[in-house]
Amino acid sequence: MHRIVKKEELAPRIKLFVVEAPQIAACARPGHFFVLRMHEQGERIPLTIADSDPAAGTITMVFQEVGKSTCELGTLEEGDSILDIVGPLGTPRDIKRLDTVVCVAGGVGVAPIYPEAKAFHELGTRVISLVGAQTKDMLIFKDRMEAVSDEVHYSTDDGSFGYHGFVTGILRDLLAGGLRPDEVVAIGPLPMMRATCKVTAEFGVKTIVSLNAIMVDGTGMCGSCRVTVDGKTMFSCVEGPAFDGHKVDFEELMARQTRFLAEEKLAMERYQVHSEGCKCRRK
């Protein structure tokens, strides 16, 4: 059992939990994720370790309520517990000191990108962060990102804050203006990561993406999370979730993300009826 010691509502339908998980906190590194199961009937869902505090024995997770499991998770309060958490999973990022890194985050992707930006920053790398969201209210982790970045640029799809348009627009402007980072890190929805890779490919800039394939065990035993990278099948829970974005078959992954669409819809509808309207949607 993992007690929730802190809950924060970062934006509509985006929540942050700090939970007790001392063994994971002790060895978590940027790029690691974990798998949780809320209760006996629950499914196993992967979330990124957005921060960890080995001294307090806690890890931080930030999640967006997109379906049944994440909506139900969002109803938990401080003091409640999560039944199972296993981690840290995945291959941690190999973070070295570089001259310049650009961190491109879309939506809730800013939470998983934060530990990487922080690690680069602590090594003395110049960190330029580009943070995009649908609208001003959905821009989260601003203070945290500003604390670990040399520059932060914002974009909103509706123009309510910062650059009006997609975050890739800022990236293109920066690269066209002559910026040549050693590496671009992109985390966010698949279309956003794919668009980022398109831009950086034009300029020949190495790009690392973090893939969110559908997982079950998260330990390499089922192959649910398989993706094609450089023409080869990889299990993203073990060999990833970070990969060279220019080699990822995004079309295939985007198709694979829809494998259980009908079931996800059914689960959500049933949940909304049972809970008389999901809390997250009512807000």
């Binding site: 009937q41 196993r44 079950v216 494998r259 259980f260 009908a262 996800e264 689960a267």
Partner: peptide, 10 residues
């Protein structure tokens, strides 16, 4: 036992 259990299988 989906949807009583959350994990889908198609």
């Amino acid at each position: 036992r989906f949807p009583e259990y959350d994990t889908p299988v198609w």
